[in-house]
Design a binder for these strands. Structure first.
Lengths: 155, 155
DNA sequence: ATAATATTCGATACTTGGTATCATTATGAT
DNA sequence: ATCATAATGATACCAAGTATCGAATATTAT
């Protein structure tokens, strides 16, 4: 009934095929006319190396050789091109994360900070109906689900 | 199937029984041990006078006689005690609004800025199930629905 | 290869939204 | 009326993000 979710938490190996992910993103950006530069690569690599949602400042801190403005620009570019997405935590802390597919939402663990994707948004039709009942034409929605991941429940 | 929504837009009269709303909030705060002060009253009145979601800075601007810190403190108090809620617009603009009942979500018009409430969150059970399928224990969620209200569709 | 051109970079300054500090003032329980 | 305590407001501060602009770097054409 509900789509399964892909867990991608901390507790795993360095990061599976991070280099390939970076190369793919660079190539997609290139197709859009964006140049392949050293700082941009560094930003994308750093983003791909993160497992849990991270803040822009954390990214800056992990990239002391790249200017702050460049980090923010790179991050914004990734969000605008759909390669990364913003994640809103329960305390309104805004974080970022690589996008793993098109439309999806996040399950966010408040204990360890891990996130998992809900790959399909089944709420969409229901929300569209509810909006229509109120005379609204729905054009989009924002949804985050908070809780604890399996590992943190055990502990 | 889906709960009806209460529209509370701009196009109406000044504001129905705003004074009573303010008195009620003051009284509830008083029960919690918060004092009834002049600046606090002014903040609450200003909040109650708003029809659409507003920013904290707009509130400050509409209350030149109240210190900025006090406006922010008052707003935070209202959110913490459940009298007001935060509303996240599609462009990540964070706004505030009086709460009209317990758990609910917002239909937000991107054209005129009006908001309406979805009074019951039917998505909740579905989300809890989806979270459980991914091994998560859901503790909460954040949902905003964007679109156009009836009046703005006509125009 | 090289020059021309447009993009990107990074240092810096700025903006916005919000919080901490702290001396002064107002509240409300007694 | 007194008095401990909460609230205020001016100010300074902080965090996240954007604008500016001269210097550096990619691409493209030659």
């Amino acid at each position: 009934m509900i789509a399964a979710a892909n867990k991608h938490s901390d507790h795993e190996h360095p990061r599976p095929r991070s280099a390939a992910v970076v190369a793919d993103i660079i190539s997609q950006l290139s197709d859009l006319g964006y140049r392949d530069t050293e700082p941009r690569r560094l930003v994308i690599s750093a983003v791909a190396a993160q497992s849990n949602p991270f803040t822009a400042e954390e990214l800056c801190a992990s990239l002391p050789c790249v200017g702050r403005a460049t980090v923010y620009r790179g991050l914004r570019l990734l969000v605008e091109t759909g390669q990364a997405c913003r994640v809103l935590l329960e305390d309104h802390d805004l974080r970022y994360q690589l996008s793993h597919q098109g439309h999806h939402h996040h399950l966010l663990c408040g204990v360890c900070g891990a996130s998992a994707d809900l790959e399909v948004c089944h709420a969409e039709d229901m929300l569209r109906e509810a909006a229509a009942a109120a005379g609204f034409r729905m054009s989009g929605h924002w949804l985050e689900v908070f809780g604890q991941c399996g590992e943190c429940i055990e502990d």
